[in-house]
Nucleic acid binder design. Structure first.
Length: 115
DNA sequence: CTCTTGACCGACG
DNA sequence: CCGTCGGCCAAGA
């Protein structure tokens, strides 16, 4: 089942624009909480994962999927990913974010602060 | 209700 | 620049 907390996490996460990244801490803060770890756990169970084949590619912009790969650790390192960090790296690069040695390049520049 | 387990964080040595 | 440690918080056993 999906708890309220988790939904809040997914919602906050989905606000991160393409080509930018945020942190677990920032997400928690947006939820008015200090449960950084809990946020990570929630993303881990993310039922709306980006890796789920975006079939059709038809047209519609119905993407209600949560871009959980745009969430990294507060020190700029990648953090984790349910389908493997390498997968996460690829997705990020595909969006124009460079990653090196398991860290976001120019982190301060691509960091997105949630309202 | 009480552990235990994380995609975490910050301070310290 | 490591590795450890204590603190956080939600879920699940």
């Amino acid at each position: 089942m999906v708890t309220d907390f988790q939904m809040n996490v997914y919602d906050a996460c989905s606000r991160i624009p393409k080509g930018r990244v945020s942190t677990y801490k920032e997400l928690a803060k947006a939820l008015n909480s200090k449960g950084y770890r809990a946020v990570g756990s929630a993303l881990n169970k993310n039922p709306f994962s980006y890796c789920r084949s975006i079939r059709g590619s038809s047209s519609a912009t119905q993407i209600n999927l949560v871009p959980c790969h745009r969430v990294v650790s507060s020190d700029g390192s990648l953090g984790g990913f349910a389908f493997g960090v390498s997968k996460k790296t690829n997705l990020l690069k595909k969006e124009g974010i460079s990653v090196k040695a398991n860290k976001i390049v120019d982190f301060d520049n691509v960091f997105f602060r949630i309202k």
